[in-house]
Amino acid sequence: MAKAEAGIGRREGLMLLAATALAACAPPRPGGPAPIDLFAAASLREVMDAAVADHLRRSGQTVRATYAGSAQLARQIAQGAPADLFMSADESWMDWLDQRGLIDPSARRRLAGNGLVLVAPVSSPDAPVDLTSPTGLAERLGDGRLAVAEAATPSGRYGQEALTRLNLWPGVKDRLAPGDDVRAALALVARGEAPLGLVYATDALAEPRVRVVAAFPPASHPPIAYSAAPVRRRDGAGDPVAAQAFLDLLAGADGQALFRRFGFAPPPA
């Protein structure tokens, strides 16, 4: 994980600190319980926005969500950022926090799965990309670059593993356009600044300006697992019981139905 930690830059950390400060300044619901501070992987934005709204209707409790790459969020939590609940796009950054005693391991839950796809701008030719052929991928890239999340992020690692197992990595490793997280990679394709991007299947559903041109076989990468756990805040603030209640909602039947509605797969066993 040391190599992954090195991939988190000063600029990205400052941007996340600013976003966290803005979320912390959001006023709680008048007369309601104290808000829950949620740090969630960028690819969870749409489903978590819906879950947050549902939780507010049910309980009257506000959830203040901060979205970024799992690596950035985990590093910020380790530095004392005020998070009550962490949701990671893979297990490794959750393990990293667990090793530092910063999450409640007994309450840790796997909530959802996902897949990897290759996307292109909707204005590009509506033709699939053959992932069994390095030549086919190179021809579709043309003079452009493959948009990916940077290597420290879960999607960046999943993507590199998939490209390596399919023998595509040697042909693209010097032709990457890395973004801070998977949504940054998605945005490059959506704006037409990259001819192809490697993102989660749910990201493609959330962005109408891209189309899926290939789906990576599940066997080409480790199972994609989103896990969540309450954070043991160093400042002693927060409400662990409230954070656990929101996590229970996500893990329950209604929460799981919400994940399915936004295109997520069941959590890997």
Score class of each variant (00 low, 15 high):
residue 39 F to Y: 15
residue 40 A to P: 02
residue 40 A to R: 05
residue 41 A to P: 01
residue 41 A to N: 14
residue 43 S to A: 15
residue 46 E to H: 10
residue 47 V to L: 10
residue 47 V to K: 00
residue 48 M to N: 02
residue 48 M to G: 03
residue 48 M to E: 07
residue 51 A to Y: 03
residue 52 V to P: 01
residue 52 V to E: 02
residue 52 V to M: 09
residue 53 A to F: 09
residue 54 D to T: 14
residue 54 D to A: 15
residue 55 H to S: 04
residue 56 L to E: 09
residue 56 L to M: 08
residue 56 L to Y: 08
residue 56 L to D: 03
residue 58 R to A: 14
residue 60 G to R: 09
residue 61 Q to V: 06
residue 61 Q to I: 08
residue 62 T to C: 11
residue 64 R to L: 08
residue 64 R to W: 02
residue 65 A to D: 04
residue 65 A to E: 02
residue 65 A to H: 03
residue 68 A to R: 04
residue 68 A to P: 03
residue 68 A to V: 06
residue 69 G to N: 02
residue 69 G to Y: 00
residue 70 S to H: 00
residue 72 Q to V: 11
residue 72 Q to G: 15
residue 73 L to Q: 01
residue 75 R to Y: 12
residue 76 Q to A: 15
residue 79 Q to I: 09
residue 80 G to E: 15
residue 81 A to P: 07
residue 82 P to G: 14
residue 83 A to Q: 10
residue 83 A to S: 14
residue 84 D to W: 13
residue 84 D to A: 11
residue 84 D to V: 04
residue 84 D to N: 12
residue 85 L to S: 05
residue 86 F to T: 10
residue 87 M to E: 07
residue 88 S to D: 06
residue 88 S to V: 06
residue 90 D to P: 01
residue 92 S to G: 13
residue 93 W to M: 01
residue 95 D to F: 02
residue 98 D to S: 14
residue 98 D to R: 15
residue 98 D to L: 12
residue 98 D to W: 08
residue 99 Q to E: 15
residue 99 Q to S: 13
residue 100 R to H: 09
residue 100 R to F: 11
residue 101 G to P: 03
residue 102 L to C: 07
residue 103 I to R: 07
residue 103 I to V: 15
residue 103 I to Y: 01
residue 105 P to R: 11
residue 106 S to T: 12
residue 107 A to Y: 03
residue 107 A to G: 08
residue 107 A to T: 06
residue 108 R to C: 14
residue 108 R to F: 04
residue 108 R to S: 12
residue 112 A to P: 04
residue 112 A to C: 14
residue 113 G to A: 12
residue 115 G to V: 10
residue 116 L to N: 05
residue 116 L to W: 02
residue 118 L to G: 00
residue 119 V to C: 04
residue 119 V to W: 00
residue 119 V to Q: 02
residue 122 V to W: 00
residue 122 V to I: 15
residue 122 V to R: 05
residue 125 P to W: 05
residue 126 D to N: 14
residue 126 D to V: 02
residue 127 A to M: 09
residue 127 A to Y: 08
residue 128 P to K: 10
residue 128 P to W: 04
residue 129 V to N: 05
residue 130 D to R: 08
residue 131 L to P: 00
residue 131 L to N: 01
residue 133 S to F: 08
residue 133 S to G: 11
residue 134 P to D: 07
residue 135 T to M: 08
residue 135 T to S: 13
residue 135 T to I: 10
residue 136 G to E: 04
residue 136 G to A: 13
residue 136 G to W: 03
residue 136 G to D: 13
residue 137 L to P: 00
residue 138 A to G: 10
residue 138 A to W: 01
residue 140 R to K: 13
residue 140 R to E: 01
residue 141 L to D: 00
residue 143 D to E: 15
residue 144 G to A: 09
residue 144 G to W: 05
residue 145 R to E: 14
residue 145 R to Y: 07
residue 146 L to Y: 05
residue 148 V to W: 00
residue 149 A to M: 06
